[in-house]
């Protein structure tokens, strides 16, 4: 019998180890080990991410501008909050009109509870649009929780480990968000193209939309809370021979500049498992 060369033997053993890991991971048995191994990695990564974020801020603005920049940030945050408040008030007013007319009923919306957490990295695969955040099941985060910034929706928690989680961004083609347009009150489904462009499809052809109109989550499907800003209409694709019209959306969030995000922890999403074939 021919003897295997040591090199072939090494490759075979390594490939078998990798395949075993792959199978264990796909069957979910690797999670406890991953939690254990990830702990020191995430500690180091959080340390780097925080320093790098601070360094980037220092380098990207002159030193004497730091105070002004802080002030601008504060005002921007305040502005974003006020805008959210306006949106919320408009929504409440519109809702109140409808509900009061029908049931004389005022709906009370429970306040969302937020958990602020740092963005510690991005998915190393350039083909998956997700970020890593420095909070996991130890901090009370669970799969499916929506993630926002003061500017609007960024995605939802896709994978949770003890010390970190992976958040799938709304710019990832795998994600779909049920949305509504604030003024025209019509609904649609937002998905991302493979190039990250956000498209809303399945919009009633008879609805009149306008550029710049605000897009909010509709809450349909139970995956996201209602009325989280998503973006504004950038362009409208209306063709009379189509069944539906489409719009391109400009997100209000700058996905490349995410430092801190908020996880909505008191929202329990409905997660539908894929039926077994």
């Amino acid at each position: 019998m021919r003897r295997l060369s040591p090199r072939v033997l090494i490759v075979t053993i390594l490939l078998m180890i990798a395949l075993s890991l792959l199978i264990l991971n796909l069957s979910g048995f690797l999670q406890p080990v991953q939690n254990l191994v990830a702990r020191p990695i995430i500690t180091v990564q959080s340390w780097f991410a925080l320093r790098f974020s601070a360094l980037r801020d220092v380098l990207s603005s002159p030193r004497d501008m730091a105070t002004l920049r802080g002030e601008v940030n504060r005002l921007e945050a305040e502005n974003a909050l006020l805008q959210q408040e306006i949106i919320s008030l408009r929504e409440q007013a519109a809702e109140a009109d409808v509900l009061a007319a029908l049931l004389n009923y005022a709906r009370s919306q429970p306040q969302s509870r937020y958990l602020a957490t740092n963005v510690i990295g991005r998915d190393v695969s350039p083909f998956i649009r997700s970020i890593l955040i420095g909070g996991g099941s130890d901090a009370g985060i669970s799969r499916g929780m929506p993630v926002v910034t003061s500017r609007g929706l960024i995605g939802r928690v896709e994978e949770v480990f003890a010390t970190y989680s992976r958040v799938q961004l709304i710019t990832d083609p795998e994600i779909a968000v049920n949305i509504k347009f604030q003024e025209s009150r019509t609904e649609g489904i937002l998905t991302a193209q493979l190039n990250g462009e956000l498209i809303v499809d399945l919009i009633d052809l008879n609805t009149e939309l306008s550029q710049g109109e605000l897009v909010l989550t509709s809450g349909l499907g139970g995956k996201y809370p209602v009325d989280i800003p998503v973006g504004r209409i950038l362009s409208i694709h209306h063709r009379d021979y189509d069944l539906f019209q489409q719009t391109t959306i400009q997100s209000s969030v700058e996905f490349d500049q995410l430092n801190i995000v908020l996880v909505i922890t008191n929202f329990r999403p409905l997660i539908f498992e894929q039926p077994n074939p």
Binding site: L21, L22, L24, V37, D123, V124, S125, I128, E158, E159
Partner: peptide, 15 residues
């Protein structure tokens, strides 16, 4: 571990 792909898949490529 820092990606959404299953553990072991990139190892196979790199080996």
């Amino acid at each position: 571990m820092l990606s959404g792909v299953p553990i072991g898949s990139t190892s196979i490529t790199l080996i």
